[in-house]
């Protein structure tokens, strides 16, 4: 990828354009432009867009925040909207996409007790894809164990979409946990339960869990 042209000192013009947007489409386009600028100063404004009840603009803002990576983590953690679960869902989705370990506690508590199913869903997904390579090995193991514990509990969520996300996250997480570890076995058992008609009444969740098990089995053959 070619390196971006040197950005202006502050993306103030683009932020101003965002503030002036007076239609859903105008907001979407202004958000896209601000996101594409990929400037750390844009993060707080992009976080603000998550609360505007404009799904198109929110998608663009999430993409922009994920592209900013760890620079967006603090603005996201500092500005979580306790009153708007739609906004929280997008914010948690951005944190999940960034995969920064500073989001761990938030993801754990969101999956365990947020009232919005879309927030719990995004949190589950995020717990399967934290980027841990920069951490010392013993810390990696303890973070993975915390993710696993949170996901095992999330497998009992009342909403199908949260259990679906748990299945997806377990697949990712188990790929990075050694088969000899006890955690690997408990993860597999949870997936088997989500794949069985006796344990899971939503067909699409069973199918996704079955797919996860097949992929994990395929991986162990190599």
């Amino acid at each position: 990828m070619p390196s971006p042209p040197p950005a202006a000192a502050e993306p103030s013009e683009l932020i101003e354009a965002l503030r002036q947007a007076d239609s859903p489409m105008g907001l979407l386009l202004a958000t896209r432009r601000l996101a594409e600028a990929c400037h750390p100063g844009a993060a707080p404004s992009l976080v603000e867009v998550l609360g505007f009840n404009n799904p198109g603009a929110a998608v663009a803002a999430v993409d922009g925040l994920i592209a900013l990576g760890e620079q967006a983590v603090e603005p996201l953690l500092d500005n979580l909207d306790g009153h708007n679960y739609g906004a929280r869902a997008w914010a948690v989705r951005a944190l999940a996409g960034i995969g920064d370990v500073r989001g761990l506690e938030l993801l754990e508590s969101a999956l365990a007790c947020d009232i919005g199913p879309s927030v719990r869903r995004a949190a589950a997904r995020g717990l399967g894809q934290l980027r841990l390579n920069a951490l010392p090995l013993d810390q990696q193991a303890s973070v993975r164990q915390r993710c696993l514990d949170a996901l095992l509990a999330g497998g009992g969520d009342g909403e199908w979409v949260v259990r679906y996300a748990v299945a997806v996250a377990l697949e990712h997480l188990l790929l990075s946990i050694d088969r000899a570890q006890p955690g690997h076995h408990s993860g597999l058992r949870a997936l088997q339960q989500l794949a069985a008609e006796t344990g899971e009444d939503t067909p699409v969740v069973r199918l996704r869990s079955e797919l996860a098990l097949a992929r994990l089995a395929g991986q162990t053959e190599h």
Binding site: G86, A89, P117, S118, W160, V161, Y164, P203, V204
Partner: peptide, 17 residues
Amino acid sequence: TLAENSLKLMALRGLVE
């Protein structure tokens, strides 16, 4: 389409099932 992911996921569940 420009809509919430929750709604898209429900629709896609329908496509699967």
